[in-house]
Amino acid sequence: MTDGKTPTTRETATGWFAALTGGDLDRAMTYLAEDVVWVNFTPVPGYNDRMPWIGTLHGRKEVMESFKVFLGQVDVQSEEVVELVVEDDQAMAVLREESVVRRTGRLFEIEFVQWLTVRDGKIVHWQSFTDPSRILRALAGGRA
């Protein structure tokens, strides 16, 4: 916002998703609090641990490193917000993504939910929910 007021939850969420789906990672990071808690699945040995970018992270620096790992392995073809719901300091969005695993050349398509908690115009808690089966299959080289 340009008037000096703290952005609303909707403004923060809308800015975050516009930057994220637009591929502007540097701008997306500006919407995160320095001490953001980022929960991108829980690693389960022998199942989803082939996705080295997942886990619980603390702080913008760890989140940026996680994105670098993800983007080093996956080429995002498209990502769009399907639905956005905002109430008080919470925002939830359903996103649709099509990506290709670089190593295998396999495409996967997923829908996932991002749940944000916003305070003082910054995302302080971020959590993602999806079924990772298609990602895992594409990582392994199988049809996704």
Rank of each mutant, 00 (worst) to 15 (best):
M29F: 06
A33W: 08
D89F: 01
G55N: 13
L84S: 01
E83I: 13
R119E: 11
F112G: 07
D24C: 09
G141Y: 10
D75K: 15
G23W: 01
V113D: 07
G121L: 06
E11M: 10
M29I: 01
L57K: 11
I123D: 04
K122Y: 07
H58N: 11
G121D: 04
T12K: 03
V124K: 06
R96H: 14
R134Y: 07
R143W: 12
W115N: 11
V124P: 03
I110M: 08
D26N: 13
L116S: 03
Q114P: 00
V39M: 06
D3K: 05
D75N: 14
T12N: 02
S66G: 09
R10F: 13
R143S: 15
E109C: 09
V39C: 08
A144S: 14
W38T: 00
F112S: 03
D88R: 09
E109P: 00
K68P: 00
L71S: 12
L20M: 15
E87Y: 10
T21D: 07
R50Q: 14
S78C: 05
V86G: 00
E83T: 15
T104E: 00
N48A: 12
T9H: 02
P43F: 10
W38E: 03
F17T: 01
M51T: 08
M29C: 06
G15H: 09
N40E: 14
G46W: 15
W53F: 14
F70Y: 14
P52D: 12
Q114F: 09
Q127S: 13
K61H: 09
T130D: 06
V63D: 04
K61V: 15
R102K: 15
T9N: 05
S78M: 13
H125W: 06
S66I: 06
E65K: 14
V37P: 02
P132N: 05
D35V: 05
A138F: 03
G22C: 06
L116I: 04
V82C: 06
V86Q: 02
A138H: 01
P43D: 10
G23Y: 03
V36Y: 05
Q114D: 11
G105C: 09
Y31T: 09
A28C: 15
R103Q: 14
V74L: 00
S133A: 15
V74P: 00
E109T: 14
V85A: 06
E11K: 10
R50P: 00
V124N: 07
R10L: 15
S99W: 02
R102G: 02
R143Y: 10
T6F: 04
R119G: 03
E11L: 11
L95N: 05
V100A: 06
R50Y: 04
G72E: 05
R119D: 02
T117I: 10
V118Y: 03
D75C: 03
T2V: 12
D88K: 10
R50N: 14
R103S: 15
G72K: 13
A18C: 04
T6D: 07
E83N: 15
R27D: 12
E79K: 12
M64E: 14
V82F: 04
T117D: 08
D120H: 11
I54A: 07
F67P: 01
E79G: 06
V44A: 04
V85N: 01
R134P: 00
Q77R: 15
